[in-house]
């Protein structure tokens, strides 16, 4: 026992050879590393970036005014005159309308998910951490909304409240709150039972402090991955609402709305009529692929 009396007893130094490698990698650094080496995710991430840039700089990029009609140049095919992608049923330039349409489609894809992430995520973390009756009340209410297929719920709320972008935004947010809440609740419940949370409680940490320091960091990954997948669903639902006349009102260029109005013209110019759908497909596919890549990089099992 004599050697145990020095301050760090010899032989108790646990570093060993390990001390030679000083590079430290946090979880998020690892995620970044994996993403940088995943060409597929990078590619689709670039596509999303491209769409976002197009949406932001639409006034600069779009060759024509997206609302400028022309009675002579209606439903012209791809490459007609200087209409790169043809014209729609009112003779408006499809290229410009598709570029401008990225704005409302992205907005309706991202905003509901962001709001639902904040509201549903917060509810889920509270339900998961507090547990007991709080959990029961929150989760049972969520279950009621789970009793509707998502498109039906969106149509019900939008249909009752009437069309318009704001109503569409509200109804889609309500659609995404329950799944977001459930994911956050599941993740939180799992983390809450882990020893390091008990250890934090044992050191006297309060609920708020423990949630911020120990829960959020561990819940973020699954919730974030799930939310990224929801963006694709949100884009599809939003364009669906617009298609039904429950989303963005004309003449605002919106991919779903464009599909709806061009539908009458499929006998005359089918290719041009299909274009907004291609734009929706590319965007939603890109978000799905990036979500998949994130899930792998973050090592999340949903």
């Amino acid at each position: 026992m004599s050697n145990a009396t020095t301050s760090v007893p010899s032989g108790l130094d646990a570093g060993g050879l390990d001390q030679l490698s000083p590079d430290v990698r946090s979880y998020w650094q690892m995620v970044g590393f994996r993403l940088r080496h995943d060409p597929v995710t990078l590619f689709f991430g670039a596509v999303i970036l491209f769409v976002i840039l197009a949406a932001i700089f639409a006034p600069l990029i779009a060759p024509k005014d997206p609302t400028l009609t022309s009675m002579i140049d209606r439903l012209k095919p791809i490459g007609y005159k200087d209409y790169l992608l043809g014209t729609d049923e009112l003779g408006r330039d499809m290229t410009s309308r598709l570029i401008w349409g990225a704005r409302s489609s992205l907005l309706m894809g991202l905003m509901p998910v962001v709001f639902a992430l904040l509201i549903g995520g917060a509810l889920g973390v509270i339900a998961g951490y507090v547990g007991g009756k709080t959990n029961m009340v929150i989760m049972r209410i969520m279950d009621v909304f789970y009793a509707f297929p998502s498109i039906l719920l969106a149509v019900a709320i939008s249909g009752a409240m009437g069309g318009g972008m704001l109503n569409g935004l509200i109804s889609l947010t309500i659609v995404f709150i329950p799944p977001m809440c459930r994911i956050a609740e599941t993740a939180t419940t799992q983390v809450r039972g882990l020893d390091f949370v008990e250890a934090a409680r044992a050191t006297g940490g309060g609920t708020g402090s423990i949630i911020v320091t120990h829960i959020l960091g561990n819940v973020l990954a699954p919730v974030f991955v799930y939310a990224s997948g929801m963006v694709s669903v949100s884009i599809l639902l939003a364009s669906g609402l617009s298609f039904l006349g429950l989303g963005v009102a004309p003449p605002t260029p919106d991919w779903g709305l464009m599909l709806s109005t061009l539908r009458q013209a499929i006998y005359m110019n089918p290719i041009v009529c299909a274009l907004p759908g291609v734009a929706i497909l590319i965007t939603s596919l890109s978000f799905n692929m990036v979500s998949d890549g994130l899930r792998q990089a973050m090592d999340v099992k949903l």
Binding site: Y27, D195, F196, E198, T213, H214, N218
Partner: peptide, 14 residues
């Protein structure tokens, strides 16, 4: 308290 060493005894994100 010192917990049993397991994968969960330390916050993996800190």
């Amino acid at each position: 308290m010192v917990f049993q060493d397991s994968y969960s005894s330390l916050n993996p994100r800190l």
